[in-house]
Each structure stands twice: as structure tokens, then as C-alpha cells.
């Protein structure tokens, strides 16, 4: 049973010429970390707000924990944790004081309130600074504090809108560690929007890329990366090397190694870099170098890379722009 079920979601703001979100359908399973990616203005925040009951869809339906966001907003809010992009706390109050008033809005009984506040602060490693004013917290501490506020009421789903936006590498890693622990120890479902593809790659079980409010691809990061074209081998050659055409290389390689699958070869304009798209790149390096050794080619460097979500993102968003 999915904990988030979205069907044909459509949102058009009153005065906007185009819909912000159109025909979006997807599901998120219990315990999954699901990432919503897309360029600026793609409709990520609008989708996020509709899922968290802060915005009503124009059409379509959203079921959160089997409850409709249009009719059961309050019941849904009792079971979701919400971390927005801009925080939402009083910087002139301490971490404890902030958690105190927020815990009341989550209807946490007075007797349990203190223990629960200590528990969540400890979970995000902020217990020692509970009496410090929030204005003295670093950006990373604030983000971890915001996650603490969203965990106060034992939510089943945690929604995070661009959680590591503006954080340096160290604080980003600390945040990721907290999210990974939530999944591992509490089987928490996490829905996050991000434009850090490295973040999505590391954290997410599945990602959905949206462009102009529409889904352009959905799947596991590894699967999407493979679909983009497998590994890439970059071979840099000296400028005076003899000229080889892509077609010639391709046919010679296939003649010499029948089982070799080369999806694509590209030679740059200066004829100084060869780029091969292959599966299992590390195994293909030797036969390619063997073949090149028969030519008057002076190899200066060899590099094997795997596709990243950046490649996926670029491919899908560019493609959809072309088709638009």
C-alpha cells in the first residue's frame, strides 16, 4: 500500500497563464526516500505544497496515508512532518523555547513534552545547545533543528523542501546522515525536493524529474543513469596523432572484439578527445587501448566515468525543452 498516491494532479494559479503542475501521477511506498527534482520553476514547490495540504489542487487527487488532502487535511497534518525552505521559527527564542510552542500545536501532552523535545534535539545532535538562541545557530544547525521540529509528533512521512539549500559540504553531509538514520532506524518515508543531484543520488531510492510541471522521468537513480547511456571512457590524444574517424574506430573495434558493445563514439572537433559510451567501462578500456596502439596515436590520458544524475537531468530536461 503506497503512503503517497498522486493521480493526474493539475494546478493552475489564478492569474498564471500556464499551469504550474499538469498530469502528475506517482506513488511513494512506506520507508522510501523519494526525491522530486527539476530546474527552477519546474513546479517542485507547488507539488510539495499540494502534498502537504498547504495548497489545493485544481484537478486530480492526492492520498496521503490513504486520506484525501482535500477532505482530511487535519488528519494528514497529524501524521506528516514539514520542513520548508525558509524555516519558520523565532530566531530570538532558544531551540527549546521554539520546540515548546511548536509541540503544543502538535498537541503533545504536557507530561510528555519535555522528554520528547530532549529526544528530538538529541537525535539531531543539538541537545547541548538547547538553551542557545536560534540566531546563534549556523545554517547546518538550523536545518537539523528544523528537522527536529518536524519529528516532534512521530510523523509517518517527512516532507523536506530543498533541505540542504545553502549549506556547505560538511553540514550537508551531517544532514544526510540524519535522514539516512531516519530511514534505517525508523523506516521513515521521506519526500524531498532538491536541486542538488548529488543529494538525490546518495539519499533517494527513487527520483522523479519534472519539467514545466510534467514528469519527464521516474525511477531508481541507478536505472535512470544506465538509461542515459552507461559508462563513458574518455581518451585524450596528442594533437599530432593521426586522424581516425569515429566510424573507422567503431568498425575496427567490432571486428577485433565481437562481444564488445559500444553504444556510441564521439571525437571532439579538435580531434584530441575520444569519448566512448559503453557498459561496464572498466572492462572495455583494454581492448580499446589495444586497438588504438595499432595506429599512430599518442595517448596522454584515460579516464572512465559513470553517468550521474546531472546527465539524466540534462538529457531529460533538454529533451523536453526541444519537444515543447
Amino acid at each position: 500500500m503506497p503512503v503517497i498516491q498522486v493521480d493526474n494532479l493539475f494546478k493552475k494559479y489564478d492569474k498564471a497563464p500556464f499551469p504550474a503542475v499538469r498530469n502528475l501521477s506517482f506513488q511513494v511506498e512506506q520507508g522510501e526516500i523519494f526525491g522530486l527534482l527539476g530546474p527552477n520553476g519546474a513546479g517542485k514547490s507547488t507539488t510539495f505544497k499540494m502534498l502537504t495540504t498547504l495548497l489545493e489542487p485544481t484537478e486530480g487527487s492526492i492520498l496521503i496515508l490513504n486520506r484525501d488532502t482535500m477532505t482530511s487535511q487535519k488528519a494528514i497534518r497529524e501524521h506528516i512532518g514539514y520542513v520548508s525552505q525558509i524555516g519558520g521559527h523565532d530566531h530570538q527564542l532558544t531551540a527549546y523555547e521554539n520546540l515548546r510552542w511548536i509541540s503544543k500545536l502538535y498537541h503533545i501532552p504536557r507530561k510528555q513534552m519535555n522528554d520528547r523535545i530532549m529526544e528530538v534535539l538529541d537525535y539531531v545532535h543539538l541537545l547541548e545547545v538547547k538553551d542557545n538562541l536560534l540566531m546563534t545557530f549556523s545554517g547546518g544547525m538550523r536545518r537539523r533543528f528544523e528537522i527536529a521540529t518536524a519529528l516532534l509528533h512521530h510523523p509517518k512521512i517527512l516532507f523536506l523542501d530543498e533541505p540542504s539549500s545553502g549549506l556547505d559540504v560538511e553540514h550537508r553531509y551531517q544532514l544526510w546522515h540524519v535522514l539516512e538514520r531516519l530511514k534505517r532506524e525508523q523506516n521513515m518515508t521521506v519526500f524531498l525536493t532538491t536541486h542538488y543531484l548529488e543529494e538525490a543520488d546518495r539519499l533517494c531510492d527513487r527520483v522523479m524529474i519534472i519539467q514545466e510541471g510534467q514528469c519527464v522521468c521516474l525511477g531508481e537513480p541507478e536505472q535512470l543513469k544506465q538509461e542515459v547511456g552507461g559508462d563513458q571512457i574518455y581518451i585524450t590524444v596528442a594533437e599530432h596523432s593521426s586522424v581516425i574517424t569515429e566510424e573507422e574506430l567503431h568498425s575496427k573495434l567490432l571486428e577485433a572484439h565481437e562481444q564488445l558493445v559500444i553504444k556510441r563514439i564521439q571525437l571532439n572537433e579538435a580531434c584530441t578527445e575520444l569519448r566512448f559510451w559503453v557498459d561496464q567501462g572498466h572492462r572495455q578500456v583494454t581492448p580499446i587501448l589495444d586497438l588504438l596502439s595499432h595506429y599512430d596515436v599518442q595517448i596522454t590520458s584515460v579516464r572512465v566515468t559513470q553517468p550521474t544524475l546531472d546527465d539524466v537531468m540534462l538529457q531529460y530536461t533538454q529533451r523536453s525543452i526541444q519537444y515543447a
Binding site: 502537504t52 498547504l54 488528519a75 497534518r77 525558509i86 524555516g87 519558520g88 511548536i102
Partner: peptide, 18 residues
């Protein structure tokens, strides 16, 4: 501007009581 209203309305609190 500080996101406090957004935080409040994301909780199950009663708007009028708030």
C-alpha cells in the same frame, strides 16, 4: 516572511484558536 505562518498552518492546529 520568516516562514512561521507556513509552519503553523502545516500543523494540525485550529486556525481560529491560533
Amino acid at each position: 516572511s520568516t516562514g512561521v505562518i507556513e509552519k503553523i498552518i502545516s500543523t494540525p492546529s485550529n486556525r481560529s484558536a491560533v
